[in-house]
Amino acid sequence: MIKVKDLTKRYARTIAVDQISFEVEKGQIVGFLGPNGAGKTTTMRMLTCFLPPTSGSATVAGFDVLEQPLEVKKRIGYLPETPPLYPEMETADYLTFVGRIKGLSGSELNKRVDFVCERCAVADVKKRILGKLSKGYRQRVGLAQAIIHNPDVLILDEPTAGLDPKQINETRDLIKSLAGDHTIVLSTHILPEVEQTCQQVIIINRGKLVATDSVQNLQSRAGGAESVLVEVAGRNGNLDWSVVQKRLEQLRGVSRVHYKTSHANRNIFEVESQKGFVRGDLARAVVEAGWDLNELRPAAMSLEEIFLQLTGSEASVGPREVVAKGAD
């Protein structure tokens, strides 16, 4: 459905996107993953014919973005990072307007407006002014305008950015439910989002393609090592952390124990292990030594580490608790 070959975007001094190539099959959800400023938005803008590429080519549904932009635009629904809403318009009027400029008219247009309102759960705010809607509704109206002309391809730029957790889940479910009819490319810098919604992942960093792979493969490539956060407390409140560290290091499979003291009297250790599941052994060891096990949880792999591993740089950076670095 989408074919990108050696796509490059060069600005006066910087290269925003550097010779990336990938293909997306029909009906797939593809996650476009990368830190802020990696070139995700620029790539998407080139796919939607908003920006012309400096060199290379991109075709959507068989049409080239430079040669036949009108044909491409007819087949693409696009949700930019901030939903392109006219604050003074009512929701229904806005969707009607977007439907018109996308080429719909008459009873078909009315039907589509009603349909997308139902689909994106914005039917109850049809008569409200867009400028007064909450962030979650604005995002959903943005999605509604993207699918109003039933496009083959949906391009969504950080569709869950700035939403609260409940809205994030709702939006992800909505996107997943759209997958049957549309090919979807969505960008994000949040790894679990890709794991939950996408079948294929394209990772870029500093304008360069780092990896394109299926989600499972990516996880297994990045996986192998596991790291666990353990919080241990002494019975009477006193605990010598170096003793605990030594004890944990003796466990089979554990490669490194890192003591990261955090706030007030909490002793938290990061335990890295080679392949295999050590959480059971860890728990037993702590309890048998007479300490309290307050918390035991796997530390999520951060996007940064996956980058480091995929790019072959040193993988010795400790796992982070926060997955979405710089999620704003």
Partner: peptide, 14 residues
């Protein structure tokens, strides 16, 4: 300013 230019520029109109 509001970014709606992106909507117009990515719609099938000249």
């Amino acid at each position: 300013r509001t970014g709606t230019i992106e909507l117009l520029a990515t719609s099938p109109i000249r």
